[in-house]
Design a protein around this nucleic acid. Structure first.
Length: 553
DNA sequence: GTTCGAATAT
DNA sequence: GATATTCGAA
């Protein structure tokens, strides 16, 4: 009985329960092996010789997924017969001696592997691979042209009837493939697994890559030359420009299209299949949160030059968010490409990429923020009065409460690239209070609850980056009360509250340290009574005459 | 030689 | 319009 691919796919705890036919003439060895296999959750049926086994198979009284057959000088002819008869059963040969001709003949007759006794546990553990291999490679595949000479020489060497050789062609071909990998490029068959790793998938992808690459003329790009983009030239990196197959923007994986120049000079855009390094994928699909992937097609493994045209980085919301967080963490004036890159920790992203994005980021800050500031902080006296507020008051957001309202006024914006959907799904701005935005801007700015402003009047984020509930702005402009609507799915947790308190602390500190500034919105000046009480408590009973607090508010 | 940032190219 | 690349300056 051969497992079909469908069966395997529906086999929940595969390979547990795999039925193993064991032909072993030595009872002790047989029992020993059975115990081992049963420990591995295989179901073992022992047969002393091939006739018993064949009769069990032909009676269909039992079915098996894989056979382990001991071959020795005495029983070899019978075992060859078994191999010919049970040719659809993946059969692993085991033997005390390593007679090369016996090994080759067994393999030629369809045995999937030839193991020396004693068989190691890991080899036994992995016998399921042959079942999978058989299941997914069943069906008459012809030997490729490249392998025909090999097969023919084997046929003549082993004096096999052609028909039998055809029956065992797969194993024959596969056995040869393992020793002749170099000869087999382009071969349509895969070697039977002989290691714990299934190589089939790898081969499949590799072949695909080679085929893909054959269609494109590529050169190393300049960034690689300056050593910034090593991951691009390495094999199947989990780096940023890979492709879109498993990634979806919504899940945080970036879709990156890749441009190639084909040999006929036609520029082509293709989406390539993701090829992951085993260490990162598939166990952790979101490990690369920014989700950039660089195409393996840029690899050089097939001797074809990588594309001179650099793959484009898609600055998706997740990636941009990382960028913004890095910039904010550094402070806008300290944010230089190399540091941003360092903080972003996105493999494959280059300093050039970051620099380019930073350029755009700054440009928009410069061009748009002044307009916003003008709109929100009009200076009736003209530009001469612009320095009246060296530090603009900041919005102190209180801890969240569902019915909380915040008076309209200054809120610091965050940069949101155009085209970003801000309806609660793609929130790119402040992780503190995302979802706020200024209407009618092609580049949205979202408010910050921060205490400093950079050269363009934007806030600098503290290092703490927490998870905050999302609020939606429903007020039409900042002069009206803004209802903060809780749109998240969970209530504010202690860390949120803590971070919010920190924000308030910062605001209060700044207000205290710079009394000449207007009070941040959300903070009330102390009442005269409180001030007098405090002064009195400190032993100051008299208030100097003609002292008047600046009437800023 | 490296990095930055602005200008320019794609 | 977005991003990559180039180039002069630090």
């Amino acid at each position: 009985m051969v497992c079909t691919a469908d069966e395997l796919l529906g086999w929940k705890d595969f390979p547990k329960g795999l039925k193993v036919l064991l032909i072993e003439s030595d009872a002790c060895s047989a029992v020993e092996m059975r115990l081992k296999l049963e420990e591995m959750d295989y179901i073992v049926s022992i047969f002393c010789n091939e006739n018993e086994a064949l009769s069990a198979i032909s009676n269909k009284s039992e079915c098996f997924h894989v056979a382990i057959v001991e071959v020795n000088t005495q029983n070899s002819s019978g075992i060859f017969k078994f191999l010919e008869t049970a040719n659809d059963l993946p059969t692993i040969m085991i033997s005390d001696n390593n007679c090369i001709s016996t090994m080759m003949k067994c393999i030629a007759l369809g045995a999937v592997e030839f193991l020396q006794k004693p068989v190691s546990d890991d080899k036994l553990q992995n016998i399921w691979q042959h079942v999978v291999h058989k299941a997914f490679n069943a069906g008459g595949k012809d030997v490729s042209e490249a392998l025909k000479p090999v097969k023919e020489s084997l046929i003549s060497m082993l004096q096999l009837p052609f028909g039998n050789a055809e029956t065992g062609k797969q194993a024959s071909v596969e056995a040869e493939q393992e020793n002749n990998q170099d000869l087999l490029s382009g071969c349509d068959k895969y070697p039977a697994p002989s290691t714990p790793q299934l190589k089939q998938g790898e081969r499949s992808l590799d072949d695909g890559d080679c085929q893909d690459q054959a269609n494109f003329s590529m050169e190393q790009d300049s960034a690689e030359q300056d050593g910034e983009c090593k991951s691009v030239e390495t094999t199947c990196g989990n780096s940023i420009f890979e492709c879109t197959a498993l990634g979806s923007p919504a899940s945080g994986e970036d879709a990156v299209k890749e441009e190639h120049e084909s040999t006929n000079c036609c520029r082509t855009e293709i989406n390539t299949t993701t090829c992951y390094e085993g260490k990162d994928r598939p166990s952790n699909k979101t490990s690369n949160a920014a989700g950039l992937n660089r195409s393996s097609a840029v690899r050089n493994t097939c001797g074809i030059k990588a594309s001179k045209k650099r793959s484009k980085v898609d600055w998706t919301p997740e990636l941009h968010k990382k960028f913004v967080q890095a910039v904010e963490q550094l402070g806008i004036d300290q944010a230089i490409p190399s540091r941003i890159l360092e903080l972003m920790k996105v493999e494959g992203l280059t300093r050039h990429n970051v620099a380019s994005h930073l350029q755009k980021y700054r440009m928009h800050r410069r061009h748009i923020l002044p307009k916003e500031n003008e709109r929100r902080w009009p200076h009736p006296g003209g530009s001469a009065q612009r320095n009246y507020y060296p530090h603009k008051p900041v919005m102190a957001f209180p801890p969240y409460h569902p019915n909380h309202t915040i008076p309209g006024g200054q809120v610091y914006p965050a940069w949101i690239p155009p085209g970003t959907y801000t309806g609660g799904i793609h929130i790119w701005g402040s992780p503190y209070y995302p979802g706020w935005q200024v209407p009618n801007e092609s580049w949205y700015w979202k408010p910050y609850s921060m205490t400093h402003a950079d050269a363009w009047g934007c806030p600098v984020m503290p290092q703490t980056v927490g998870s905050y509930p999302q609020f939606a702005q429903t007020a039409p402009d900042f002069q009206t009360t803004i209802e903060m609507q809780y749109t998240g799915s969970t209530l504010l947790n202690p860390s949120d509250l803590h971070a919010a308190e920190e924000v308030i602390d910062q605001v209060v500190k700044e207000a205290i340290s710079k009394p000449w500034l207007p009070l941040p919105l959300g903070l009330k000046p102390p009442s005269t009574e409180c001030v007098l009480n405090e002064l009195s408590r400190q032993g100051i009973s008299k208030i100097p005459p003609h002292t008047k607090a600046p009437n800023i508010r």
